[in-house]
Simulated assay, not measured.
Amino acid sequence: MPGDAVRASLRTQRSEEEKIVATTVPLVRVAAVPSAHPYVTAVADPAGVRLLADPPPPGVPAGQWWPPQVLLPEWLEAHAAEFDLVHVHFGIESYTADELALTVAALERLGKPLVYTVHDLENPQLSSQDAHRAGLAVLAHAADELITLTASAADEVAAITGRTATVVAHPTLLGEAERPAGTAHDTVRVGVHLRDLRPNIDGVATTATLVRAIADLRAQGARIEGVVRMNERVRDEEAAASIVLLAEGCDGVRIERGPRQDDDELAAWLADLDACLLPYRHGTQSGWAELCYDLAVPVVGTRVGHMAAQHPTDFHTFDLGEPLSLERAVIDATSPAWSVPGSRRRTAEIERRRTERLRELEHVRHAHVEVYRRVLARELAA
């Protein structure tokens, strides 16, 4: 297949590049915050970057990286000889703006550059954004370079901080793995995954809007169903109970509750959808939108943050509390021009995108190495 040939060519080219780089340029040692995160490991070019392992915080379960120890001045002082720069992605909510200012001061004393990827102009783990914005301001002011994922997010970063961010797209996190194409079914299936009902997910309003939209579409003769999934353990049991009540007795809408899905289970669940509904009340960019793109599942989402800018042709907007807007978005997303689960067309589109995304991943990794080299060169010249 053409896609297989392209991937083989990329692997051969990459192998040769790695040999050259390994013998001429030392790896950049990056203390990432965090290191053990799928996005962070994906963008780290193995030919040019070595990620330090996350230092384990005292007294937390094995594998937990937060609160990130790399941001502690005492850790930076003790381990300065082990890294070339710090790259912050997530986890700044663990510390106050004043504490982050101490982190910045320690890096300045040590002559270690700071790179900050502004994933979250609004933190999805928080309801009030005041503390997050204060911490963001500290890091954005001090960082040697800023990165963000879309041009529109970069515009907002510039408006808020006065700084220019390098735009580097969110890459696939699936690597070369096979993608599921879903199972064929005789209805249009619209699914929303509320996960553990974290603060930026409006599960009640999203479910209420979906229930009304499904009822209206079915009344018009559409063969359509809605699926609402939640984890067994959620952060807001009262909201979970309300969500269950909203869907009770509603023809065409069902609630699923189960253990947190692993990556393969989640991909398989998404692949069975004709459209995926994103339930966000606030946010900036979405890893779910990226996974849906990989699986050729169109996204229906609210007008928050910069999610629509990630893959505009796959994103269809609606307003919470406005079922008519959701109906229109679903009709648009599932038009005959689109592919359906389990079809040859869906399989072919997934394969096309896999080839495209593997090329993009190479560019993303190269862009990160370029940023690292720039800040290190400036540090040496200072």
Rank of each mutant, 00 (worst) to 15 (best):
M1P: 04
A5S: 13
K19V: 03
I20N: 14
V25C: 11
H37E: 07
D45T: 02
G48V: 04
P58W: 15
V60R: 12
Q64S: 10
V70W: 13
L71F: 09
P73F: 09
W75V: 03
F83Y: 05
V86K: 11
S94Q: 11
E99H: 12
A101R: 09
H119G: 05
Q125M: 13
L126T: 10
S127Y: 15
D144R: 04
L149Q: 11
A154R: 07
I160G: 02
T164P: 02
A169Y: 15
H170K: 01
H170R: 02
D196S: 07
V204P: 00
R218C: 00
Q220D: 10
G221K: 08
E225G: 05
A241L: 14
L245E: 15
C250P: 13
V253H: 08
E256I: 01
R257C: 06
A268Q: 01
D272I: 11
E290W: 14
L291C: 01
V297K: 01
R303A: 12
H311Y: 15
P312H: 13
L320F: 14
E327H: 08
A337W: 15
P341N: 12
G342Y: 09
I350L: 03
E351G: 08
R359H: 14
H368Q: 02
Y372C: 01
R373Y: 10
A377Q: 09
